[in-house]
Design a protein around this nucleic acid. Structure first.
Lengths: 215, 215, 215, 215
DNA sequence: GATGAATGAGCGTTCATTCAT
DNA sequence: AATGAATGAACGCTCATTCAT
């Protein structure tokens, strides 16, 4: 079974207490939701995989949807962690003088994150089109915050002379779709033998740097 | 209701005959599948929206999944039409001398396609992670064919001197993720007033051309 | 099993069509609701007794409560039929010159009704304290109408000199509680060998006539 | 919340000890049973309203039904208290020479009782049709005892010349249904502004006295 | 071709009850 | 005495599918 301890550490914070059974339920739910999707997953299947009685699920989560959200909501926060950590400005100004350094750091960081959270990431991406609540959360917390940070970063590199003068929104779009494509290819489309991580990262970064360089 | 006539013309070819009821069923199914996903859609809901009896659906499609596949399979073929139409080579060699022209044409073409087929496109993208049959079809028909064509195109522009020497697979990845991002932003993320089509296309194309230009 | 044909004739009117299975469902539901009460009756029990699949119940009635109401609502109308039939005035004025005649006729009539509808009557009485919808219906349709008719009747016999001058409401209360007690004793409390119908009716009527006679 | 102290004093006698939590459980159960009925009340609802853990209920009562019976059984005894108190004979012979006095005393007494125990009374009446155990208790303890006493009382007033010669059972029936109707009207049907207690009692008593007076 | 009644397995959820703490 | 996590049977209800008409 999925390495649940690590997972649970991620989800479990603040005042919440997780009983052992609850941990098993969450771990099982993550696996099955990722594989078959929320709607096609039955609570009895989760219970069986978790090795608990079906009623136990509903002692901890009022509904199946609450179980989904309890898994996905904190995940969404984590997905954008690097954009909201306050250090980012310092990092930005000091360590990553060049856009290239910044991009490399960002891709490495997000790849490391995905390696640890692939299943959760899948669930978020797969359910986003269907769950209105997720979309609301996503818009409010994710889009807003990420956009704000990205805006400052883009402006920084535009003043820097490394990024062409172009609407921030467009730069962010090109930036994110390239990185998203990079991560999808690595984690969901290509097999490891089709992927040399060092080289592909270098190419992705070069593509971005040159594509956005002032014309 | 979705302009079903147009839709059905798209799906209906060769020897198949569609009764009026069947057309209504397909049109209703497309709308609901797109909105709530295949698994969360009930056949009774489709029947009600289509204005037919529940049994009628199963007169035309043995199972609910067959209904899905009957909708999605021809769609997948259409998604890659421009890559398989035999003219493409001619087009490639003659009309679009430059990469820029080619990219513009491609984006315009795919955007026009999506405008007409947004719902169907949504269904394909949303169900691909869950439906093994779709994945098989996708890999066999789409990936293989598109990749083959794209390979030739990329090589053409590499020999041309417009695209950097780099593994074809990588070029295709950068290429597709940028175009995919462009289309998603336009059709699913941004509102019309956030999007100036001419300008954004120009920027997307410039980004690609410069990002892939020999170093 | 309960004589369902007769019952269904009672419940089935106007445009409604009852399938054979539906009739069986209603008949089974009446029996079990009467015996164990609505809340303690499971739909699976009804289905089993009716000899149908559980799903069949929900094809005809959206919810268990709708099944209850479909049984009970028309019953409530019937309970007060003699009070709303327009003939009552004629009957009152012509045939039953004396209070005694009127009371005898009324008791006989309601006893005959209960004989045919004991189970349905039980359900109404048992569920009235719990079902808000029933209470609303009861107040609106039953209480209001019965009270209006009874008022006229009471006034008639007061002008007649057979009933003491006393608030109508009070006369009705004494009148109804005596008749209700009569019917309960006969149908629900005493065994047939404890009950001589002719004699008991005579006594009930005499009690009422003398109790209400002008002081 | 219902004034539980008073209630508990009523229920708590002999060797039984009630912990504070137990008192809260009983008080909560009474309220909810009265409102929604035994079968439609869940133990978790009782626990929540009582502010205790679900398990606590089952520490004091082996089953939900035992909780019901622990509430209802002593209540049934109280309902007939005036009929079993040994003083009744003395009362009968000395204080209440006339039937009128006796009836007034009886009605006042039962009204006072109901004022204090309306919820409990509701539960008894509502559950009697469904709970076999209650019916057994009711028949054995209530009916039997009340009937025995009533018999003597009726005979007393028959010898007295105040009550007509008629089967005791019938007299008791007329007597009880009138009093029951009086109490129901006052406590469950009519609003206080529709009810003048002094006057209504006078009318009820007069009705009984005259209705039962020798013909 | 179309219907809609009928099915029974399975759904998400609640239930009364148990038991280790 | 009190807790509350855990149970698994049962609940009301929905599901995709069948079939006689």
């Amino acid at each position: 079974m999925f390495e649940q301890n690590q997972l649970l550490e991620e989800l479990h914070f603040e005042g919440e207490e997780f009983t052992p059974k609850q941990k098993k339920i969450v771990a099982a739910a993550i696996e099955i939701f990722a594989e078959k999707g929320y709607a096609a997953t039955s609570t009895s299947e989760i219970a069986k995989k978790a090795g608990v009685a079906e009623g136990t699920i509903f002692r901890h989560y009022k509904t199946k949807k609450e179980l989904l959200l309890s898994i996905v909501a904190p995940m969404m926060a984590k997905m954008i962690a690097p954009f909201v950590i306050k250090d980012i400005n310092r990092v930005l100004d000091k360590d990553h003088d060049t856009l290239e350094d910044f991009l490399k750091e960002m891709i490495k960081n997000r790849a490391a994150f995905m390696e640890k959270n692939m299943l959760l990431f899948r669930i978020v991406v797969q359910e986003l089109p269907f769950q209105k609540e997720l979309q609301a959360q996503f818009k409010e917390h994710i889009v807003a915050k990420v956009y704000k940070r990205m805006e400052r970063i883009v402006e920084h590199y535009q003043q820097n002379g490394e990024v062409v003068e172009m609407p921030t929104k467009t730069v962010i779009r090109l930036f994110l779709s390239t990185i998203f494509g990079h991560l999808m290819a690595r984690f969901f489309i290509l097999s490891p033998d089709e992927w040399n991580d060092e080289e592909e990262m270098e190419r992705t970064v070069q593509f971005l740097v040159r594509g956005l360089r002032p014309w």
